[in-house]
Design a protein around this nucleic acid. Sequence first.
DNA 1: TTGACATGAAACTAAATGGTTTCGTATAAT
DNA 2: ATTATACGAAACCATTTAGTTTCATGTCAA
Lengths: 111, 111
Amino acid sequence: MSALSKKHDVFQAIADPTRRKLLNLLADEELSVTLISKHFPISRTAVSKHLRILAEAGLVQKRKVGRETRYRLEPTPLLELKNWLAFYERFWDNKLVMLQHYIEHDRKTDV
Amino acid sequence: MSALSKKHDVFQAIADPTRRKLLNLLADEELSVTLISKHFPISRTAVSKHLRILAEAGLVQKRKVGRETRYRLEPTPLLELKNWLAFYERFWDNKLVMLQHYIEHDRKTDV
DNA sequence: TTGACATGAAACTAAATGGTTTCGTATAAT
DNA sequence: ATTATACGAAACCATTTAGTTTCATGTCAA
């Protein structure tokens, strides 16, 4: 067993766009909860809950520094996702599928 | 715009373990709803709803054959996931992270 | 034509999710 | 010592989710 009990898995954790944005934000630097929540239109408490879910999935690490809690990305669990995805690689190795994707590329890859 | 309205995105679609199992099942062969639901402990109607969500995310295609509806995998939208994941590759290119992953590899990659 | 099969829509339910506000506690600053 | 800051726990709320059962419709078989 890893540190925190895995109530949430990585698939569920990244399902929410706010949490994906959090991961993106924490990729570059370790940040305190207050600083993080500056980037979102929701309350600090709501951000804090998202961070807890990410922590349960092992996707972020937290560290207490004085009165603040700083979070940083922990990318390792994303390997599970990569691994899951690997099974389907054979399907899009097909060049036609690739082409099809980039032609009808109407939705921008947000977050 | 693609065929079905994208009410559900691929991240949300694969968040559910039942839906991941569905994708896995439909990777090999096109199957009717009744046949598909034989593989699950839930009702046919429940399976049907999961299939609709997958279809909305573009991950399955459906085809009417007589009185049955057959579903098959449509892997293209998984490229969005792969693309999202690519951003984080630089973090686990670190060999130590890889090692860490395989050492504490306690959870099997289910589904 | 009558009956069986395949499916999805509809209505409903319990639980999970994403959000809020309020409050207690710990740490820092004056 | 007092005040301000940083945070999470708690209680609450609305919406979504994952499931159910029932029903109507379309298609195949006898």
